[in-house]
Design a binder for these strands. Structure first.
Lengths: 352, 352
DNA sequence: CGTCTCACTCAAAGCGCTTTGAATCAAGCT
DNA sequence: AGCTTGATTCAAAGCGCTTTGAGTGAGACG
């Protein structure tokens, strides 16, 4: 069933039928009703392709993921895509997903733009200085960055205040009296990880202390990374009594390392995690397992699509940057440092 | 730059240019080279939409995920989609993703078919008796099921031999001498979970033992589920000395429950997990953490796309069912039951 | 009564590609 | 020379929709 057939069946021209279905005003209300009824009855559904060709828009949003950064999204994939898909389909957009080899990404974007197969792109996991942003800007393809990058181009983005979040997490541990706090960060060529590192340093320096390279780690946020790194810390850095872990997955790994040694989180050792609120690794309940700074990946997905659609429909509007604050949630995994390592000095300043 | 412009620039007709680019034989080799060179030089890229309309194919594969089953995919999302996306793009197909509310799924499929916006569909997480299969069959939309369903329709599918895998896992524990083994299954309205349950029962019954409802659990495969259920077992079922956990995520939860009690997996209690080989929750190394039956979700994704493309290109070909066997991998999480609970009876039969 | 509006409807021209059927021309055959 | 044949190339007809510009008739107005 196509438009022409439907029109013939209704004894109307395709023009009128098209207008009736698409809500144009130049059509009598009675006619519109008749058309809509027939369309429903005959299960008429306009051809997506034809409409796309005629209008020049594809009603599709692309998500391009570099293979190397694939792990970075890893556990959060499902949750963020629920957000993306929901918001997109609500506005009539399809969600397209491509995992692309790093060295082919530029070509891929160029083809994407030239073939006009998508109306916009969500840029994921930006690096510290992400060249893709410049590229997309040049290509004139509407896009929104999930995260940020220190690049001299105007663009729209949504990010969590990673620096502040980790600063607060570290502060919280300092306030509890921990003197030596380690950082288990993500890969530091990623913008989010670089900012988290800064947040950690901010907090330490604010107390007049110095940071040490041996207690700052960077790596892919897997469970094994959390476990192995914590193991290493327990072996080599006995003065450390708390860690800030930049993901709930490695936090579980860190916890396992403690438990394997018979240690208890919150008593013998403290953990604060960055929690993206993954549905299969929930950290909730009366007293959540982990003390954490948290922010919903799913909600971020939804908002990003809103920003992108705004750019698509109005390409000349001003760029928008949205910064979300993470929420600090006190759970079971933190406590005062054990007496041996405890301190009596500067402590519990009346700080935010 | 469109085809017509390129043709004018080359002093050729659009027909010839189109044929040259698409590898048709009716074009002189020298002409083809000239055309290809110009296309590359001018960054010509055919319009996806126009091609789609002209050919009647969309070169897009849809993945429709019910919101309620979204969690079921959860942790494995990223990995399976890496497989899907890779295989698809290699064959020139785009990957489209939709999370759909359960009650709107039928309508969604009908629209998908009527609007001809995708060439095929991957059906995820089928239930025991999945009506969507019948629907897709009626709609004439090519599809492949990731998993299986007990439904009276011919269709193509790829599944892991869940029943056998869990049977082997259970057998392995029985061979070690465990007399009371609990099952932490997924949601049992899902086909994969129903089969796993059967595998568990197969193994127990084969030893002439009976299964008990109180030691068989069913639920969404989260970390918390693994933790809470194991907690419950430790409290209420002291005779149980081993568990079969149907996912690596809840297995971590189960492990945490043990460790929280100061118990050691592989010594005080045994765990066998079903491992989908998730990249952020790797279970590898010299001696993997968990004894597991495993199967790669990523590889499954790749193969499923192959099957689907076969159906798309040749809709009348015979349907194909692919059954993969999981691999049993012995790790640190299993051992003989502790002496108290140990047995001297039927043990270590020379069974597969 | 003639002219203007307004409300509605339509024919036709794209959108940018593929594909069919026909045209052209040189070479091969009788 | 006349007819095939095969190798190239092309003009034109779609694919199914949107959109422009024009047309129609009824009522309003001078």
């Amino acid at each position: 069933m196509n438009l022409k057939e439907l029109a013939e069946h209704l004894q109307l021209s395709p023009t009128t039928v098209s207008r009736a279905l698409n809500g144009y005003p130049e059509v009598r209300e009675e006619t519109r009703r008749r058309v809509c009824a027939a369309a429903a009855a005959l299960h008429y559904q306009p051809s997506h392709n034809a409409r796309q060709l005629a209008t020049g828009r594809s009603s599709t949003i692309a998500h391009v993921i570099q293979r190397s950064q694939h792990a970075a999204l890893g556990a959060g994939f499902a949750d963020s895509f629920e957000g993306f898909s929901d918001a997109s389909s609500q506005q009539g957009f399809d969600t397209q997903l491509s995992v692309v080899d790093d060295d082919q990404e530029e070509v891929f974007y160029r083809e994407l733009a030239a073939s006009r197969r998508v109306d916009g792109v969500v840029l994921h996991a930006p690096t510290v200085n992400d060249e893709r942003i410049k590229l997309l800007d040049e290509l004139g393809l509407p896009f929104v960055v999930h995260g940020r990058s220190d690049v001299h181009v105007e663009y729209s983005w949504l990010d969590v205040n990673n620096r502040r979040a980790i600063c607060r997490a570290t502060d919280f541990l300092l306030d509890l009296g921990h003197q030596h706090i380690a950082l288990l960060n993500g890969p530091e060529h990623m913008n989010f990880a670089a900012r988290r590192r800064l947040g950690y340093i901010d907090a330490i320096k604010a107390r007049g202390q110095g940071v040490e390279d041996r207690t700052m780690f960077s790596g892919s946020l897997t469970e094994a990374y959390g476990y192995n790194t914590t193991e290493k810390l327990l072996n080599n850095s006995p003065q450390v009594s708390a860690i800030v872990v930049c993901g709930i997955v490695p936090a579980f790994g860190a916890l396992r390392a403690l438990q394997t040694r018979g240690m208890t989180a919150g008593k013998d050792y403290s953990i604060v995690a960055f929690d993206d609120q993954l549905s299969h690794l929930q950290n909730s309940g009366d007293i959540p397992l982990f003390t954490s700074v948290r922010s919903s990946l799913r909600q971020a997905g939804t908002r990003i699509i809103e920003l992108l659609i705004e750019r698509i429909t109005n390409p000349n509007s001003a760029h928008k940057g949205v910064l979300w604050e993470a929420e600090l949630l006190v759970g079971q995994s933190t406590g005062r440092p054990p007496k041996a390592a405890s301190t009596n000095g500067i402590q519990a300043r009346d700080n935010d």
